[in-house]
Amino acid sequence: MTNSVRVAIESVLFLGGDTDATRAFFNLVMDRLHEGSDSGQTVSFVPSVDAPTPPSGCWVPCFGSTDKNASAGRALEFGADLVANLALGGRDLSMYSAPDGALFVLADLIDPKPQPQTLGQVAFVDLYTPRAKEAADYYANALSCRVIHELKPTPGDYRFLAWGDEPVAGVVDMLDVLPESVPPHWIPYWRVLDLEGEVARLSDFGARVRVPVTESALGPFALLADPFGVTFGLQTPLSDNLLVEHAKSRS
């Protein structure tokens, strides 16, 4: 479902855990990649809010909306709970707990134009949840998106949300790859050129490779855990293009 309210992934927040140490690590992740380009401010670190988070912290996506109030109303109407209001960088953000318990943030969309594919920035986010279909339907309703399903081979049973032809977020059936005991969680993907080189570089800083460089219908990717155990991903600009192509082909 798509309407005139435009929604896009705008940034990610790291919530809880050892925010200073995690910030230091992700500065290293992003620093070299940003050389010669505008780094932007796509990652924020928030010590804690009144919401349950794992001890090592978790990633939370921030979706920008051209009509935040309307998106917030829909988020609540379809079953989310408002858990915190935050002020970050002079902006008001609202954090919600979705029906499956995963957290997400809504903000005003600053720049409604599609963003350039900058290396070192977060390119995409995937939600890993045991209730993939319900979750995809929920976000489609809350974020005024449509659900695109059945891409193979993919990391598990895969759906992704698109606003028009623009990909917004992916939803992975977590039970295909992880035990049920793992709570639903978001994984942000940093955009890099040399996947294997970056995997080696980041493992030199203490990252642990969970999924080595792997081909998929949406381009190659790798999953790593930061030195504190929180998972993040790497992908290449090819994934940006493939996601758009798939979204267009399913319009």
Partner: peptide, 15 residues
Amino acid sequence: GGVLVSVPERAEWMA
């Protein structure tokens, strides 16, 4: 506990 190579690639390992 870092996975170097896995087949299938997305197999779950209690590394």
